[in-house]
């Protein structure tokens, strides 16, 4: 199996799906000739032409709104939001329209569309190029929210998202684009939306994370193994629908839970996971459920030292794991 990075895996996924199904098109800022700001769509305009790889105006509400209309007319649009930070103008289209049309029309209509959005920090991108936005959208029934961490999962989940008959918000951690490499089979495969994956089995505590944080958690778990602490790392992969049975089973087995996300703590997605565990696995808990997330400051700071202070990293995760293991 060839080893490729996460960005290439997404590009391959787009390419292979577009080759199979000519209803699929890409719409976003600079996605055409420029190949996208991260070069994810590079080369696709040459292969599929300017009618299937379309440059949009700088108006996210239009990107998503136009894709909703197209999706309801027998196409399969893939909207690219250049940075997840810019998704706010499209919030109304995504939440009020895309997520509800299937329900509102009693199942007569659906919006088979994917919204790709690079999110997350650690790349020195400062306030407007580093945000984590998953909690806003994972709150919305009718919307699926996917956040893969590995090239294999990214490609397989992207294909499932494109084939899904309802809107999927596909979150790509931009730091993983070129940093994370992995083996991706050449054959056509899918990773289903929904199931989490235990990326590393362990006995003493369960860690739930997604995106870049999975890699930091795996690194932390690896270094703790030397001191005899066995950590189970569960990659949620999909935030909505959430794989509650896997979360509960792991929590019940280990009795100690750490939830890690880069998004700030208050109202973050970790709160939902913690609540589910507290509600359904209370009698199996051997320690308070611990969350590790970004601090409640208004945005990712620019200064390197402050960005480092904001981002959870393997060292902070190791400390949290150690404290929990020792509790």
């Amino acid at each position: 199996m060839p080893e490729i990075n996460l960005l290439e895996a997404i590009r391959q996924g787009l390419d292979e799906m577009m080759a199979q199904d000519d209803r699929i098109f890409i719409f976003g800022e600079d996605v055409g000739r420029r190949g996208g700001v991260f070069r994810v769509t590079e080369g696709l305009i040459d292969k599929y032409g300017p009618l299937r790889v379309l440059d949009s105006p700088l108006a996210e509400s239009v990107i998503v709104g136009a894709c909703i209309g197209a999706a309801m007319n027998d196409t399969r649009p893939i909207a690219e939001i250049q940075f997840a930070d810019f998704i706010a103008p499209a919030f109304n289209q995504i939440v009020q329209e895309a997520a509800r049309i299937h329900y509102r029309s009693n199942g007569d209509w659906s919006v088979p569309m994917v919204i790709r959005a690079p999110y997350g920090g650690g790349i020195h991108g400062a306030l407007y190029h580093s945000q984590s936005i998953e909690a806003f959208f994972a709150h919305v029934p009718g919307l699926k929210v996917v956040a893969p961490a590995t090239p294999y999962d990214a490609k397989g989940l992207l294909k499932s998202a494109i084939e899904d008959n309802n809107p999927v918000l596909f979150l790509e951690h931009k730091k993983t684009y070129r940093l994370i490499k992995g083996q991706v089979p050449e054959h056509d495969y899918r990773v289903p939306i929904g199931p989490a994956e235990i990326k590393r089995p362990g006995e003493d505590l369960s860690v739930f994370a997604y995106g870049l944080m999975i890699h930091y958690c795996l690194e932390a778990a690896q270094s703790l193994a030397a001191s005899g602490v066995s950590v189970e790392v569960v990659d949620l992969r999909t935030l909505r629908p959430l794989d509650v049975p896997t979360i509960l089973a792991s929590s019940r087995r280990t009795g100690k839970v750490l939830i890690v996300h880069e998004d700030n703590l208050t109202g973050g997605f970790g709160g939902e996971i913690a609540a589910l565990i507290a509600e359904h696995a209370f009698e199996y808990l051997d320690a308070p459920i611990v969350r590790l997330g970004g601090p409640d400051v208004p945005a990712m700071p620019f200064a390197r030292s402050l960005e480092d202070a904001f981002m959870p990293n393997p060292q902070k995760i190791i400390e949290a794991m150690r404290r929990l293991a020792a509790y």
Binding site: G255, F282, E283, Y284, L285, D286, A287
Partner: peptide, 10 residues
């Protein structure tokens, strides 16, 4: 520390 966690109490 005499606190019993839920799982320990159970």
């Amino acid at each position: 520390n005499t606190f019993l966690s839920p799982v320990v109490a159970r």
